[in-house]
């Protein structure tokens, strides 16, 4: 859905939320829908965390206070990066992160001159971590444009997982791991590596890349349980990232997956 958002850039505003990062808010209209984008610019070398922070840190939490007549969706998170320090793996963002929301209102003309407030509770880390908890108010009539249409298209194509896909996926629990089977339908694709970033923390071992092997026409990816997992999930839910070669080019594709798990 979000990948079709090559819309008209309308408005934009920014605020410093911490000496190491500042945020900008911009608004995009596409077809009958309108989105706001909260963009974090992060000082070089520092990072913020995804909705699953991984082995360390805490998830970035954003809560909105909206005037009557305006509602927003849950966050549409960009694909995070996995960071490994001393054997501990965390998920987050460095340099830049654009979080989108669909904004819903009865009458578009009424959004002007209205304030929307967001509370950001996060942790910015390098070799040390600094927490911050900031409340920012944006006036919707003060917003200006941030991305041009090409930048927006590039951002949405490369930095967000596909919600819809035609991958044939099967998940089975085998002892202390899940085996995720991907049927390989394309003769031209040779998958070189896989990374699975789970939505829920504390269930699976957090890794930079998952081990895998090929069996007939399938790839089998090993996703190990955390030895201190809190429960066994019914579904494998998260972002699956594939790196593969096609016509001598290395391509990255990412998919949001939800695969029922069966015991083997």
């Amino acid at each position: 859905m979000i990948k079709n958002l090559f819309g008209i850039i309308l408005i934009f505003s920014q605020a410093i939320v911490h000496p190491k990062t500042f945020v900008e808010l911009s608004l995009y209209k596409a077809d009958s829908k309108t989105y706001i984008c909260l963009n974090f610019t992060i000082e070089n070398g520092w990072h913020l965390y995804w909705l699953n922070s991984g082995d360390t840190g805490i998830p970035t939490e954003i809560t909105w206070n909206l005037p009557d007549g305006i509602e927003i969706s849950d966050e549409l998170w960009p694909i995070p990066k996995a960071f490994e320090v001393d054997g501990l793996v965390s998920y987050g963002y460095e340099n830049n992160a654009s979080i989108f929301y669909e904004i819903i209102f009865k009458d578009y003309s009424e959004i002007h001159n209205k304030d929307i407030t967001c509370k950001i509770n996060s942790l910015i880390c390098k070799d040390i971590c600094i927490p911050f908890d900031t409340v920012i108010t944006f006036n919707l009539s003060n917003l200006k444009s941030r991305f041009n249409q090409n930048e927006l298209k590039d951002l949405l194509n490369n930095q967000f997982p596909n919600k819809e896909h035609s991958l044939e996926l099967f998940g089975k629990i085998e002892g202390d791991k899940v085996l995720l089977e991907i049927k390989n339908n394309s003769e031209n694709e040779t998958i070189e590596s896989f990374s699975f970033f789970p939505f829920e923390n504390g269930i699976f071992k957090n890794v930079l890349a998952n081990e895998f092997y090929k069996e007939l026409e399938s790839y089998l990816i090993k996703i190990e349980f955390d030895p201190f997992r809190t429960h066994i999930p019914e579904k494998l839910e998260g972002i699956l990232i594939l790196f593969y070669s096609e016509n001598n080019s290395r391509i990255k594709k990412s998919f949001e997956i939800s695969v029922p798990l069966k015991y083997y």
Partner: peptide, 12 residues
Amino acid sequence: KTTTPYGCSVKY
């Protein structure tokens, strides 16, 4: 018996 810990990374 198990919960997910939160905090700074252990600085190994």
